[in-house]
């Protein structure tokens, strides 16, 4: 189980990285933490011609608070998020989710940008971005785009990211006093991908609820969000709108049921 051969590039800055990406025109893959890409390469289901290691690109690092939002560089590792005072104070939902994301050794390398670019529907980070109404900052040959998380994820491992673009950062609204957050994921084993998981943010009576591990991407259901504050039972009926995953771990019906349980428990935690 050895990765196929590739050229390894290590640009010193963002401009160089973008130039390399453009030069290889779709044959190059950026390497962030590598915690998902490397296994795919070892299994030879991913076989990029060129790997562009973003480790030295300083522009992709750092966590800053700018007024009413927090900017997290794409190459920020989970371990850095878990220790960062800005994140813990202003984006508490991320802090709630981090202990559930894999294990220490993975969190020590895995990055927020890498997870978003990969768009694994079972991963926590895309759902967190949806619940937090984050925007994803993307830079390419045609300049910088700020894409709402709602518009970023398309399907299994598919996003709106163009092949010459890199995620540079995510921009998340700072948590306010009127906000509260919930998170629940149901896994048989600690750190596994969830059978069903949910991230919730509530601003006054308004909810943003993003499920993960249940469909082809992290998903919100508008009708559910609109009604959940009034009648949870009724709101859960709107889960029907999701096309649930059916696989060896759980069929669609089970996943739907577990999504309902996850939401119920996340909400209970928020009120308790």
């Amino acid at each position: 189980m050895k990765a196929p051969d590739f050229d390894y590039l290590r640009p010193a800055n963002l401009d160089a990285a973008l130039a390399m990406l453009a030069e290889h025109d779709g044959n190059a893959v950026p390497l962030a933490g590598g915690q998902s890409l490397m296994p795919m390469m070892n299994f030879r289901v991913a076989a990029p011609e060129v790997l562009i290691d973003l480790a030295d690109v300083a522009e992709l690092r750092g966590i800053t608070r700018n007024g009413d939002h927090v900017r997290i560089g794409a190459m920020t590792r989970y371990v850095q998020l878990s220790k960062d005072p800005i994140i813990l104070a202003d984006v508490p939902l991320i802090g709630m989710a981090l202990p559930h994301i894999a294990h220490d050794a993975i969190r020590n390398r895995g990055t927020i940008g890498g997870s978003l670019a990969l768009a694994d529907p079972a991963a926590e980070m895309p759902a967190l971005m949806l619940a937090l109404d984050a925007a994803i900052e993307v830079v390419g040959a045609n300049g910088t785009r700020l894409i709402k998380a709602d518009n970023f994820f398309l399907s299994y491992f598919e996003t709106v990211l163009e092949k010459d673009e890199l995620i540079t950062a995510v921009v998340i609204p700072t948590a306010s006093n009127t906000q509260s957050f919930g998170f629940c994921e149901l896994t048989q084993r600690h750190g596994d991908y969830a059978l069903a998981g949910v991230a919730v943010s509530r601003t006054d009576a308004k909810y943003r609820i993003a499920f993960f591990g249940v469909a082809d991407r992290a998903v919100r259901v508008a009708a559910l969000e609109d009604t959940v504050g009034d009648d949870l039972e009724k709101a859960l009926a709107h889960l029907d709108e999701i096309e649930f995953t059916d696989d060896g771990k759980a069929n669609a019906a089970t996943r739907q049921r577990l999504a309902g349980v996850a939401l119920t428990r996340a909400l209970e935690e928020m009120t308790s």
Binding site: F43, Q188, R189, H190, D192, Y193, D247, G248
Partner: peptide, 16 residues
């Protein structure tokens, strides 16, 4: 075989 990886074939881990 549909789950021929260690992520998919679940063995007992310490936490549980």
């Amino acid at each position: 075989m549909l789950n021929a990886t260690m992520a998919d074939y679940m063995v007992p881990m310490a936490s549980e």
